[in-house]
Structures are given as structure tokens and as C-alpha cells.
């Protein structure tokens, strides 16, 4: 079963609003995670402009020797991306599901301030459940 290393959510201006790592591999300190987030935001924007074909929506998948990075951008510009083992399956589904959780437990929470770091207990609880391995298989059906 493929392992997820970490999950990021960045707001439309590139600020990291949620970061969570899973397991020991790929663990990063706060500064590094912020750096990855803003770097990815810029690369994503540049890739749209450098694309040889028009209508490009940015990088969806980055494949490296030791990890894969899957990215999903919502219509409002919030980006969700997950760093996982090379060749991991069903990550698009997982990201869409995380987006769903975000719309439910973050955006409908009256105590959440837009574009600010996410501190919502219910979001954490549901995310943990979703990332559990069997759940990812279920999502991939």
C-alpha cells in the first residue's frame, strides 16, 4: 500500500494554511514546509505561463526519484497537494476528498477566518480518517 508523506493546503496568495506529515519519511520543520509551499505556488504559476499549449491549468503531478507530488487546484485558487511514495495510486481522489472536507468543516465553520491557517478540530478528525490506508483504497473505487 502506498504511503503518503505529507499534505499541504495553500491559499490563493501562496501562504501555507495547513500542513500535516504522516510517518517518519519526509518529515520537515516548519520553515521548510513554508518554503515548499511558496515554492510550489510560484512554480505552479510559472508552469501555466510556460506551457506550450493554451489553457494549461498548472502542474498536476511532479514525479521525482524518491517521491511523487500530486496537486489539485480549486476554482478559487486554493491548492491542495500531497507528497507520496512514487507510483502511489488514487491521489486525485484523495485530494478531491480533502477539498470536500475543507468546504465542509473549514468554510462552514463560523470561527474560521478566510485565508488564515486552519485550526479546526473536526477537519483534523475527518482528515485523519480519510488518510487511513483502507480509506484511500475505498476512495479509489
Amino acid at each position: 500500500m502506498a504511503a503518503i508523506y505529507s499534505l499541504y493546503i495553500i491559499n490563493k496568495s501562496g501562504g501555507l494554511i495547513y500542513y500535516k506529515d504522516y510517518g517518519s519519511a519526509g518529515r520537515m520543520d516548519t520553515n521548510d514546509s513554508l518554503r515548499v509551499a511558496s515554492l510550489w505556488h510560484s512554480m505552479h504559476a510559472i508552469s501555466q505561463q510556460l506551457s506550450p499549449v493554451s489553457g494549461c491549468l498548472g502542474i498536476e503531478l511532479l514525479q521525482a526519484d524518491t517521491f511523487d507530488l500530486h496537486c489539485f487546484q480549486s476554482l478559487t485558487g486554493t491548492k491542495f497537494f500531497v507528497v507520496c511514495e512514487p507510483g502511489a495510486q488514487h491521489m486525485e481522489n484523495l485530494l478531491k476528498f480533502v477539498y470536500e472536507l475543507y468546504t465542509d468543516y473549514v468554510l462552514k465553520n463560523p470561527f474560521y477566518e478566510m485565508e488564515m491557517p486552519i485550526r479546526c478540530e473536526l477537519f483534523d478528525i475527518n482528515l485523519t480518517q480519510a488518510v487511513q490506508k483502507d480509506r484511500v483504497v475505498f476512495l479509489g473505487r
Partner: peptide, 14 residues
């Protein structure tokens, strides 16, 4: 259903 109370609000309940 969708509401998480921030820690600094104590026992507040919607």
C-alpha cells in the same frame, strides 16, 4: 455538524 469551537472560546456551544 460543521463547527469546531476554538480553544480560546472555552465552553461556548453554538
Amino acid at each position: 455538524k460543521f463547527i469546531s469551537i476554538p480553544k480560546d472560546m472555552g465552553t461556548f456551544n453554538c
